[in-house]
């Protein structure tokens, strides 16, 4: 068929074009984020140019960033984890309970337990998806309610208060190092590790392969089950870490902590260019998506948009991102068809 198509386009140019195209997807979101920040700052300079404003800008989306990175990894495998909000709630409450029930427990141990607990809940999701062969959407919708139910059962009308937790732990949620909040530093370190793993490790590339074509991954002999389990465990563990940080940041934890995080995390990943059908996208995109999502929420009131419209704006953003992806994907597909079989 190659002979049918006159394809004067140069292969290397295509590669370069693709490289910038991929970049463009994430820079586009970054640009939107900068735009929102600039607009809000023009209206109210305190949005960026006050120490609180700057701190909030970095701090607020940090917890969502962690959850969104985990979510992106799962979505890349053509799955989804809707239970992350409930996992976050459970581990946040667990964090408070640990400080109350084991006085003097080292903060590092609390972090470890929170992460392991989240990972375990993720393992349950992953095992149900991988072995029961039920779509992740259904399984994790079930565990969303189940985990929240356990939380309510365990917490009851109780709540964790900041007085229950040591000051050194709570300080993590508010402290900054060189003007950068500690929480943001933790989130960015996790982000960098995840991005590096997905790009440079066999396991990371296989996650993309599985999401790109699950049937081919099976034929290929990839360890699909193992990788899927790992993705869900990782997603749960990150939600667990987010839960611990949630307790540190907000100081109070009720049985409803983290409700709605799952949709924000999916939204952040999609806005950031992670294909909902798997196989493409980066955790960088999801991270920027998380920042855009929450920064818009804070910027809209300043810009004078009524409360009532804010959710509609977020919705428009998500739909816009999906439409943009679709258009870009179609254009890319067309370009690739034209360029096929052609090198230099």
């Amino acid at each position: 068929m190659t002979a049918l198509i006159p394809a004067p386009t140069v292969g290397s140019r295509i590669t370069r074009g693709l490289g910038s195209f991929v970049k463009a997807r994430e820079t586009g979101i970054l640009l939107a984020l900068v735009l929102v920040i600039v607009a809000a700052t023009v209206k109210n300079p305190n949005f960026l140019f006050s120490s609180d404003g700057f701190r909030d800008l970095l701090l607020t989306p940090s917890i969502l960033l962690l959850v969104a990175v985990g979510q992106a990894i799962v979505i890349i495998t053509r799955n989804v984890d809707l239970s992350v909000g409930s996992v976050l709630g459970l581990t946040a409450y667990l964090t408070g309970r640990l400080f109350i029930d084991i006085p003097g427990i080292p903060v590092i141990a609390v972090f470890a337990i929170g992460i392991i607990a989240g990972g375990f809940l993720g393992l349950i999701n992953g095992a149900l998806v991988a072995f029961a062969k039920v779509p992740a959407l259904v399984i994790t919708l079930g565990t969303l309610y189940a985990y929240r139910g356990i939380n309510v059962l365990w917490t009851g009308s109780d709540r964790i208060n900041s007085s229950d937790m040591p000051a050194s732990f709570l300080a993590l949620g508010t402290q900054s190092i060189m003007f950068i909040p500690v929480l943001t530093i933790i989130a960015v370190v996790v982000l960098i590790i995840a991005a590096w793993y997905l790009r440079n490790q066999r396991g990371g590339r296989e996650l993309y392969a599985i999401g790109s074509d699950p049937a081919a991954a099976n034929l290929y002999g990839l360890k699909v089950t193992q990788r899927l389990l790992a993705a869900f465990i990782l997603c749960g563990a990150l939600a667990g870490l987010a839960g611990v940080l949630y307790a540190a940041r907000y100081g109070t934890v009720s049985s409803q902590a983290g409700a709605g995080y799952e949709l924000n995390a999916v939204g952040a990943a999609v806005i950031g260019g992670v294909a909902i059908f798997g196989g493409s996208g980066t955790v960088w995109g999801a991270a920027i998506g998380a920042y855009l999502l929450l920064t818009i929420n804070r910027a809209l009131p300043i810009l004078g948009v009524q409360d009532f419209w804010q959710r509609a704006v977020v919705g428009a953003l998500i739909i816009g991102a999906i439409v943009l992806d679709r258009v870009l994907a179609l254009r890319q597909a067309k370009r690739l068809v034209e360029a096929r079989g052609d090198l230099q």
Binding site: E206, Y208, A209
Partner: peptide, 22 residues
């Protein structure tokens, strides 16, 4: 080599060749 090619459409040609044993 199967009758129907089984490739990962989102990944590069090179990655498709070496997937799992890069």
């Amino acid at each position: 080599i199967y009758q129907e090619p089984t490739l990962f459409p989102d990944l590069s040609v090179t990655e498709n060749i070496f997937m799992g044993r890069q």
